[in-house]
Simulated assay, not measured.
Amino acid sequence: MSDLATLPATSTLARSGSSITFEDVSKSYDGGLHVVEHVDFQVAAGEFFSLLGPSGCGKTTTLRMVAGFEIPTSGRVLLGDEDITATRPARRPVNLVFQDYALFPHMTVGDNVAFGLKVKGMARRECTERVAEALASMRLTALADRRPTQLSGGQRQRVALARALVNRPKALLLDEPLGALDLQLRREMQLELGRLHRSTGTTFLYVTHDQEEALTLSDRIAVMNQGRIEQLADPRTLYERPATVFVAGFIGTSNLLVLHDPKRVGDHHVSVLGNGDRMVAPVVSSGAGPVQVTVRPERIYLHPTEDAEVRDDHSAVRGVVSEIVYCGSTTHVTVELPTGEQLVVHELSNDTDLRAIGRGSRVRLSWAANCTHVIGPPAAAQ
């Protein structure tokens, strides 16, 4: 287990984090290239907040506007109550951790951690005490005299974090800091980052394109696409109630479907497909016409025979198995519907029903009405 788990809740590394506020911020470059457009959000003091999205969506530019390496074309950036929009980077009480760590190769671990404090002219004794504390907290004391080239990727990442936190910033900015690590080490470091955040109370603003990483670490997540925020919410809400087609597809695996000519039956939309098949979704508006919905693969039940009985208030569709992919604890089954649409189902690999099916098997799928999330009219959802 990581030694970060033993950090006291009131570690002296801790310092009350500050809120970060974006007020109608846009960033464009010469030639009219708009990288960030009219972004409005606030990161609460002490929050772990992630900016999530594909490459080129504007998340790193947004982070760099907090650090001061980019200046907004319009709008304001505040740290706490202070407008820092035009403040020079060196005068902002924030620290940035890069993906490549940006450690000085000619310096020892201890000197790398002490660098910022020495630049500020801190007294030698206080500098020494702070560095010793930071090294101990990150399990680096025994490595203080080594150089970065003598360290593993995880150790270099801890040095970068120690160097950032030793300055006791009001916000820690992290630009895909785990991107260079292998999968197992990345997962270990995710746990360490979470524990570090809880022990220090510092505001974390985290940039990543990895949705699993964002869901694991964050209090809230802003999903960005083409310079705008598509949805800002806690991880569970983003996963279970995506606001747009983009969010539904980017956060995990999602089955997107359209209910054509749905009829209202009580509190549900029901789209009758014929042959006893139907799709059922909660009613969220009184509007008529097609409805865009999504259902997560783990919410769908796979029946090994196409004539299986299904409750009347559940969605039920028949199809043909086109693909079966074993993924260890789960198996992913793709089923093609008569409409040409495909549904992906995640089943536990030890499910005995899986033994009865193969490619070409005719099966029936079902799921409860409350497992269907309504996004809205198809045109509005695009």
Rank of each mutant, 00 (worst) to 15 (best):
149 T>F: 08
376 G>L: 01
336 E>T: 15
359 R>P: 11
41 F>S: 02
91 R>V: 04
43 V>W: 00
64 R>I: 03
171 A>F: 04
281 A>V: 07
106 H>T: 13
377 P>H: 15
170 K>A: 04
82 E>T: 15
320 V>E: 15
329 S>W: 02
70 E>A: 08
59 K>H: 09
297 P>W: 02
283 V>M: 12
117 L>T: 10
65 M>P: 07
60 T>A: 03
330 T>Y: 14
108 T>G: 09
163 R>C: 04
228 R>D: 00
184 Q>L: 13
44 A>F: 04
240 E>K: 14
302 L>N: 03
101 Y>P: 08
208 T>Q: 14
150 Q>S: 04
220 R>M: 03
35 V>N: 06
219 D>L: 06
340 G>D: 11
281 A>R: 06
233 A>I: 02
199 S>G: 01
162 A>I: 02
147 R>S: 06
75 G>Q: 05
126 E>R: 12
117 L>I: 12
367 W>H: 03
118 K>M: 12
298 E>D: 14
45 A>K: 02
366 S>C: 03
296 R>T: 06
333 V>S: 01
104 F>H: 07
89 P>Q: 13
20 I>C: 02
190 Q>L: 01
205 L>D: 08
38 H>F: 00
205 L>R: 08
264 R>L: 01
296 R>E: 08
378 P>V: 05
158 R>N: 07
214 A>S: 03
33 L>D: 11
369 A>F: 05
337 L>H: 08
343 L>G: 02
272 V>L: 12
226 Q>I: 03
40 D>H: 09
379 A>P: 03
5 A>T: 07
130 R>M: 06
245 V>C: 08
169 P>G: 00
246 F>Q: 12
73 T>W: 02
92 R>E: 05
138 M>S: 01
351 D>S: 05
222 A>C: 00
79 L>G: 01
37 E>H: 13
156 R>K: 15
131 V>I: 05
192 E>T: 11
39 V>E: 05
243 A>C: 07
52 L>S: 08
202 T>A: 13
318 R>A: 09
195 R>C: 00
28 S>W: 13
322 S>L: 05
217 L>H: 07
164 A>Y: 02
73 T>V: 01
13 L>V: 06
19 S>Y: 01
336 E>C: 10
318 R>L: 02
289 G>E: 11
281 A>C: 08
35 V>W: 05
356 A>N: 09
320 V>Y: 07
136 A>E: 14
309 E>N: 11
147 R>C: 03
375 I>H: 02
178 L>V: 10
122 M>K: 12
210 D>W: 13
349 S>K: 00
104 F>S: 09
245 V>E: 15
215 L>S: 05
77 V>Q: 13
141 T>Y: 01
151 L>K: 08
310 V>D: 11
296 R>G: 07
119 V>D: 04
336 E>K: 15
263 K>E: 14
66 V>M: 04
197 H>K: 12
316 A>S: 11
205 L>S: 07
149 T>E: 13
225 N>Y: 10
145 D>K: 13
112 N>H: 05
331 T>S: 07
102 A>V: 10
289 G>W: 11
93 P>M: 09
132 A>E: 15
140 L>Q: 02
